[in-house]
Amino acid sequence: MTSSGNPPRNFTAIDTWVFDLDNTLYPHHVNLWQQVDVRIRDFVAAYLDIPAEDAFRIQKDYYRRYGTTMRGMMTEHGVRADDYLAYVHEIDHSPLEPNPAMGDAIAALPGRKLILTNGSTAHAAKVLARLGIEHHFEAVFDIVAAQLEPKPAPQTYQRFLDLHGVDPSRAAMFEDLARNLAVPHQLGMTTVLVVPDGSKEVVREDWELEGRDAAHVDFVTDDLAGFLAGVSAAK
């Protein structure tokens, strides 16, 4: 276990374990999200009838400003969420391989395990099935359950907590984007930032890799399965 450098909270009273999906429950270097990224660019280009390079700039601008490109496209251009989600998640999930070590580590955690993702339930189901860990999770809270308001919107976390009856002071949140941990930490959750393995090449924007020293990050790990095993051993 690695502390971010801040006086961290601990896992002693934790009975609910909340996980982001993409680039958190599978390694960053699989670059599965790169496929989605290309599909998003193509959707924006086709919808706005603009060249791919212009679509890419809009895509990334909306992603950073609105939390997801979809939210930006809905707000700025009236895109239908169902059409967007169906198109961008039509990808090849075969790069994902079963991860029994991750499954064992999650199973050993005492209490409930939940997914909180800006993706769709259908995409989450495919990812979890490929990893062989779907049976460890009680529920998936997706972008539709969030009423199409993505993390890091505060109301999205509150909807999640209310729907699933989660006490944030007894919950831990695992995420690959530091900015998505700010609200959970404010609410009282113990936060863990999952970062790429430094020896592997990853396709990410610079800002997505920032924040590991932020005050709202309690722990940082580049090996989630190992980190979880350590947490269980210490409880």
Rank of each mutant, 00 (worst) to 15 (best):
P95V: 07
S120F: 04
G111Q: 03
I106L: 15
V88W: 08
L116Q: 01
S120M: 08
A124S: 15
E76G: 12
I106D: 00
M74Q: 11
G119A: 14
L109Q: 08
T117K: 01
E76H: 14
A108N: 09
P95Y: 01
T75C: 07
L109S: 04
L116G: 01
A124K: 09
E90F: 12
R80E: 15
D92H: 10
H89V: 07
S94W: 05
N99D: 15
L114Q: 07
H77K: 00
A81M: 06
L114I: 02
A122K: 13
A101S: 14
A101L: 13
P98S: 12
T117C: 01
A122N: 13
I106R: 01
A122S: 15
G119F: 09
T75Q: 12
M102Y: 10
I106S: 07
I106K: 00
D92F: 06
L85P: 08
E76I: 03
I106M: 06
A108I: 03
H77F: 08
A101V: 14
G119S: 13
S94T: 15
E90Y: 10
L116R: 10
T117Y: 04
P95A: 08
L85Y: 09
L116K: 09
D104M: 02
R112N: 11
D82K: 13
G119Y: 02
N118H: 05
D83K: 03
V79D: 03
I91L: 04
A86I: 03
Y87S: 12
A81H: 07
D92Y: 04
I115F: 08
H89P: 07
D104C: 01
R112T: 09
D83P: 07
D104W: 02
E97F: 05
S94E: 06
R112L: 08
I115N: 06
D83F: 00
S94L: 10
D82C: 00
M74E: 11
M102P: 00
E97T: 15
Y87A: 13
G103F: 09
A124H: 09
D83H: 10
L85G: 01
A107C: 06
H77M: 03
P110W: 03
N99G: 08
R112F: 07
A107D: 14
G119E: 00
S120Y: 04
A105I: 05
M74K: 05
G103N: 00
T75V: 12
R80C: 10
G119K: 03
G111I: 09
M74S: 12
I91C: 04
A81R: 02
T121K: 15
M102W: 11
E90H: 14
A86D: 14
P100C: 12
A108H: 06
P95S: 08
M74P: 09
Y84Q: 07
E97Y: 12
P98E: 12
A105C: 06
L96P: 00
D104E: 15
G119C: 01
P98L: 08
L109M: 06
A107K: 14
R112P: 04
L114E: 09
H93E: 10
T121I: 13
I115Y: 00
Y84L: 01
H89S: 04
A122G: 12
H93R: 08
A105R: 00
L114K: 02
I91H: 12
I106G: 01
G111K: 02
A101R: 15
T75A: 15
V88A: 00
L96Y: 08
T121D: 14
A125G: 11
H123F: 02
D92N: 12
G78Y: 05
E76Q: 15
E76M: 13
A108Q: 09
N99C: 12
L109V: 06
A101M: 10
